[in-house]
Amino acid sequence: MRIPVALWVWYHGGTFRGFQRQAQGPTVQETLEQALREAGVPSTGVMPAGRTDRGVHARMQVVSLRIDPEDSPQALAQRLPVLLPPSLGMCVARRPHPSFHAQWSAVGKTYRYRVQLGGSVAPEWRPYVMDVREEPRLAPHDISPGRLEELLRMAVGRRDFVAFHENSSPRKERTLESVALKDQGGGLFEVILRGDAFARYQVRYLVGSALLTAAGGLPEEQWRAALETGERIVGLKAAAQGLVLWEVRYPAELDPFTPAERAAPPGLPEGPPFLGAPEG
């Protein structure tokens, strides 16, 4: 019987057409599965904690897979990294609890969104940031960081975020546990969103529509109504390149990864877009 493995991988999304395998690649899934085949792992497919869209990055994406019983996660961790491209890497391979599943065992996720509100985007950040001056609906206006944070904090709580996600995601209540805005200097800001679950495009619509409201392009009463009643709005979907899947959380008894690994992930590259303190 094949044995389960939990794999922590990271990627820069700009070189991929999203996570999920599709006819027009390359995708993270097909690239990872090809590398696994080259590493001697018979392909049965990998199951991610969640799918990311084209252009979205991941500091921590977790996948479940199975390997032959004579193999081991430790041996796989030695073989796999050299077979991956520069934009995709591995931090940890671990044999998890028998009931662990990358997607269904997850109890929450954290996303970070990087947005340039003023100044000039540093060259090293260019592929990983939304510059408000390049968005026509935002460009003519100055956006106050304090106002942006005020609006985003209105979204905290358990609610139906139907006005902020695609119809392809099931309509149900989700909890946005916290939102914080961090000044990274030079006009660069980082929005940190922690929740139990997120629908497709939810973070991008929340951040984009909050930016639009802060810029005066969407009345605050419409923003509030969208949050409180699900009233549809002509919102703004923020650019994919600013978004990072930062962390996937599991119950302590099922978590394959240690607190030390979460605080300082082995093998995670230095530099953008994976800077910033770990989640506290």
Rank of each mutant, 00 (worst) to 15 (best):
G186L: 04
I143H: 09
N167W: 11
I67V: 12
F100L: 05
A75K: 11
P140M: 06
D196V: 11
P69E: 13
R126P: 06
V191D: 03
L148Q: 06
R59G: 01
V191Y: 07
G108H: 07
A102I: 11
L151G: 02
K109H: 14
Y111Q: 10
V132S: 11
D131T: 07
S87L: 03
A106S: 14
A93W: 05
R94T: 13
Q184N: 02
L181W: 08
P86Q: 04
K172I: 06
E177K: 13
G146E: 14
V82F: 04
E190N: 02
L152W: 05
V115K: 09
K172E: 15
G119E: 04
S144K: 04
R158K: 14
F189T: 05
Q74N: 01
P136N: 02
A122T: 08
E173T: 14
A197E: 09
I67S: 08
G157L: 08
L188P: 03
H141I: 00
V179K: 00
M90Y: 02
R59T: 00
Q202E: 11
R54N: 07
Q78D: 02
R94E: 14
R194Y: 13
G108F: 08
E124I: 07
S120Y: 05
V107L: 04
Q74F: 03
Q184K: 12
L152F: 02
W104G: 00
L188C: 03
F189E: 04
S168A: 15
R137V: 05
G118S: 15
I192C: 15
H141W: 11
H101K: 10
L148I: 11
R200G: 09
G89L: 03
R174G: 01
E134N: 12
D71Y: 00
S99M: 12
R174T: 08
L181R: 07
M130A: 11
E134V: 01
Q61W: 08
